[in-house]
Every structure is written in C-alpha cells, then in structure tokens.
C-alpha cells in the first residue's frame, strides 16, 4: 500500500487515514469474499433454509391441494400424529429398520475391509468387487432383489425348496417384508461403508503391526488391540452416516413394497411422500418431515460432539 504524501501530517490524522484505508480494505475484502460465496449462499437460501422454515410453518396449517395454507391448526397435526397408529407404526418400524440395517452393514463391511487390507496378489480385484455396490443405484438394486424375492421364480425360494423348506412371501408376508427391505439396503450400503473403512485401515501406521509381530502377538490380538481402537473414529463416522442413511430410506420401498404389507414397510420418508404427494396433505406431511429433521439433527449433533472430543484427546 503506497500512500506516502509529501505533506507532513500530525500523528493523529495519519492514524485516522490508516484506519480509513483499513476499513475500506475490510469492506472490500468482505465484498470480494461474499462474491465467491454468493452462488452457494443464494442456493442454500432458496433450496435449504427457506424450505426448512417453510416446512415448519406448513406443519401448523391445513393446506389445499396446491400447497397453499388455508386454516391455522396450531399443534393439531403433531397431536394427531402421535395418536395415529399408522404413524406410530411408521416411527417404530423406522427405528427397527435402523437396528436391522446399521450393525449388520458395519460388521459385514468391517470384515470385508479387514480381509481386503492384506497384502495379497490380486487384492485390488477383490477391493473393486467389494466396493462395487456403491455404483449400483437404488432402482437397479431394488430390481435385482425384487427378482430374488419373487415368490415363485426367485432364487431365495428356490434355495428354500432345495432344502425342502416352505417358500416365504418375502415382500408380502408382514413378518418378513421389513427384513427383506433391510437385506436389500444392507447389500446396497456395504460398498460405500467398505470403501471408507478400508481407507481408515490403510491410514493406520504399519510400524505398530511390525512391533506387535516382533512381540509375537496373534492375529486376533492385533485386530482387537491395534486395528479396532485406531479405526474407531472411522467406525464412528460410518455408523453415524449409516444411521442417517437408514432414516432417509425411500427408493427401495417405492419399488419393492410401496409401504406394504399392512404398512409394515411404511418408513418415515415414504410416509411423508405418501401424505404429501399422494394424499396432498401437505400440512400433516410437513409435521412428519419436522420429526424426521429433528431425528437427523440429533444424530448429526452427536456425530459433531463426539467427533470434536476425539480430536481433543488426540
């Protein structure tokens, strides 16, 4: 910044000028910074923050079929929701679904990551296969499993027949439908979870294993004492992401069961979709969306909180 002036100034006015220039620079850099951020800020505003507040707002109203508010009903949607057996079932089954899918996905992916982390010939091929379901879309995965679950032609019932067991109505039997959707979901999610866990394993310092080898530690001792503790941040991340993903399940249900049988697989996002875009009850659908938002908010908050603590302890 060259602002030498030939006039001898008093100390005070010089300071004032410096301050003014500083202020101008601050405003300039603020404007410039905002310019780089503006596209994102505008789109977040229009497609994230406004819809969020609008959803909360709508949840206190009745609406017409176009989504315009008609009558203010206060907390009525919330009160109705928590006394409505169908919604309560939807909440219960959503949590059940999370319990069915998350632990199994993480355990299978961890197992795959551990065996794919060995330095063996051709391991790259196996890594590619294990991560491949990440590239399979919900629609395609659901179509594959729709056939596998097919009551007459599906491979699963053919296997049962081979062992002379009774065929199962995988998607039509209320006892099995949620489990079948969970199996599909686990299969779909293993690819991504595996890839992240493998990355976590590879970032563990190999000298730790070497010194354990010198001490003659067994394979499972190393797994328990080195791998799992050092992998815990990654494991934690993967568990949170899986839980959030499970709460957002939609496509599988739309293709496999449409929420049936007897609302067994009517998980929360599908329930919102049906309430809003089939029944045109945007008010009560918004109230359900607020519940979903709060659940995800709590999950993410826990992730940040625990993640932060982890960093402090390092």
């Amino acid at each position: 910044m060259s602002m030498t002036s030939p006039i001898i100034e008093t100390n005070e006015s010089y300071l004032k000028k410096v301050e003014k220039v500083h202020k101008q620079n601050r405003i300039k850099s603020l404007l410039k910074g905002l310019l780089f951020l503006l596209p994102s800020i505008i789109l977040f505003g229009v497609f994230v923050f406004y819809p969020l507040f609008r959803t909360i707002y709508l949840s206190f109203f009745l609406t017409d079929a176009k989504g315009a508010t008609t009558v203010f009903v206060g907390w009525e949607h919330y009160v109705n929701m928590f006394t409505d057996p169908i919604f309560l079932k939807s909440i219960k089954n959503t949590f059940l679904f999370v319990i069915y899918t998350v632990p199994v996905t993480v355990i299978i992916s961890l197992f795959l990551a551990v065996i794919a982390n060995e330095k063996l010939k051709g391991i790259g091929f196996f890594r590619t296969i294990f991560s491949s379901t990440m590239g399979v879309s919900v629609a395609a995965a659901s179509v594959f499993w729709l056939y596998l679950f097919n009551p007459t032609m599906g491979l699963l019932n053919e296997f049962l027949q081979m062992f002379e067991l009774d065929p199962i109505g995988w998607l039509t039997d209320p006892k099995w439908a949620l489990i079948s959707v969970a199996v599909t979901t686990i299969w779909m999610n293993v690819g991504f979870t595996f890839l992240i866990l493998l990355g976590g394993l590879q970032s563990i310092d190999s000298s730790l294993y070497e010194s354990a080898d010198i001490e003659g530690s067994s394979y499972f001792y190393k797994l328990r004492r080195i791998t799992i503790p050092l992998l815990s941040p990654t494991l934690f991340f993967v568990i949170t992401v899986s839980i959030i993903n499970s709460f957002q399940t939609f496509g599988q249900i739309d293709i496999l069961t449409q929420g049936g049988p007897a609302n067994e697989t009517n998980l929360i996002v599908y329930s919102i979709y049906r309430e809003a875009f089939v029944n045109y009850q945007f008010g009560s659908a918004s109230a359900q969306a607020v519940v979903l938002f709060i659940i995800i908010l709590i999950m993410t908050a826990i992730q940040f909180k625990v993640g932060e603590r982890r960093v402090h302890y390092q």
């Binding site: 994230v48 406004y50 919102i272 938002f293």
Partner: peptide
C-alpha cells in the same frame, strides 16, 4: 448438512 433433503422436499417441490 444437518437438513436432510427428504425433510424439506415439500417446499422444494412447490418452489
């Protein structure tokens, strides 16, 4: 990141 798209899909559709 805390706002799942599914939870704000209704106003998004209207927009």
């Amino acid at each position: 990141m805390m706002v799942p798209f599914e939870a704000s899909v209704i106003p998004n559709f209207h927009i």
